[in-house]
Design a protein around this nucleic acid. Structure first.
Lengths: 203, 203
DNA sequence: CGAGGACGTTAGCGGTCGTTAACTGGTTTC
DNA sequence: GAAACCAGTTAACGACCGCTAACGTCCTCG
């Protein structure tokens, strides 16, 4: 009766496979026939579920951006103090990066393939998400200028989003170990925002 | 007499513009006519200089991979001790990331659009470059397992390569300040590799 | 001078791709 | 039980794109 319980709806199947293919070969590198084949139907059958190829990408990017922002806000609100908030943001982002690898990849790679209106929406969501981070980082590391904090946040995103580049899972640490390692690296990077002036003068 | 002194050769002009366009809109998203137009000739004129669109991408990716590796090896060889070597590697990578933004972007984004043989070559160069880093990181942070060091190196690459994502240069710190910030963040992240067991137990 | 090569041009071919049209079988609904 | 709808199918169209062919122009050099 309820197809969304354990089984994915056809629509969600399509989104899942499209995300994987777009991340692997790029938006322009994947044809609608391939997406269809990946869910067992062929080509134009997709148009029963989506207005077009662009619409699939738009839904994926708006979805991930919105979820990152919503979850980020929630975690900050639930945290007891800035340090805990920062840790919660990091943990949340890592969870996204590990569990939704294709989406994280698309999210900063194929944004420009969107229609103007969708692109503006996604960028706005991304900007708000960055603001959430910058505010927390600013409270944990008051020595840093806002500009430094903003650049550092982008850099930490790059660090946390590096998981997809680690091709095979074989040589990877397990999910928990990898998650913990990334968390430590991110916190370590941000700690370098303190004592700006005479940091590591020996070098 | 020497066209490569102050002026770029036509070939290098093409490579430069192709890199910019590929980074902006993706390999499949750019047509040969656009690349031609960017250097003042039109479409098929490019085929006097390159065997095809693929050949341009191949030359770009092999070039950047090779230069990263060569320069990295050189810097390690010239450094007095592991700490200095690590700092030199970081500085070198930052210089690439800031000065050759499009190439750094392409380098981890469009690798799969290459012919099998070129792809193998680029991957091999990339792997060797990672090995150079892992060896140095292993000596500076002996507590870390090799697996941790390898993952950390990839993560630091993600951190350092985040510059392209900072769209406008307006809100950015200047080149020197940005470079210094990235360096501190990278060193800070890697410092978190020490004292693995009971790191930040308060969280 | 005159031949050859370097470097362009435009026209057009062949293939691919996103999308639409027309149609079909199965399930729901009154 | 017929009507309506849902979820697919195949065929085909129009646009685009990488690349080749054929041709032109200028510079170089024996």
């Amino acid at each position: 009766m309820n197809p969304t319980r354990t089984t994915l709806s056809r629509r969600d199947q399509i989104l899942r496979e499209a995300a994987r293919l777009f991340a692997e070969r790029g938006f322009h590198g994947v044809g609608v026939d391939e997406i269809g084949a990946a869910v067992g139907i062929s080509g134009p059958g997709l148009y029963r579920h989506f207005a077009g190829k662009d619409a699939m990408l738009a839904e994926l990017l708006v979805g991930i951006s919105g979820r990152l922002l919503t979850e980020g806000k929630r975690r900050v609100a639930d945290a007891a103090g800035p340090e805990k908030a920062l840790d919660a943001l990091i943990r949340g982002h890592i969870a996204f990066a590990i569990d939704d690898r294709p989406l994280i990849t698309l999210h900063d790679r194929e944004l420009d393939r969107l229609r103007e209106s969708d692109r503006k929406l996604v960028r706005q969501l991304q900007r708000q998400y960055v603001e959430v981070w910058v505010a927390v980082v600013g409270r944990v590391h008051p020595d840093a200028t806002e500009r430094e904090a903003r650049s550092a946040v982008h850099a930490v995103f790059g660090l946390l989003n590096s998981t997809p580049h680690l091709g095979a899972e074989a040589t990877l640490p397990g999910r928990a170990a990898m998650s913990e390692l990334l968390r430590r690296l991110a916190l370590g990077a941000l700690d370098a925002l303190d004592s700006t002036k005479d940091w590591r003068v020996t070098y």
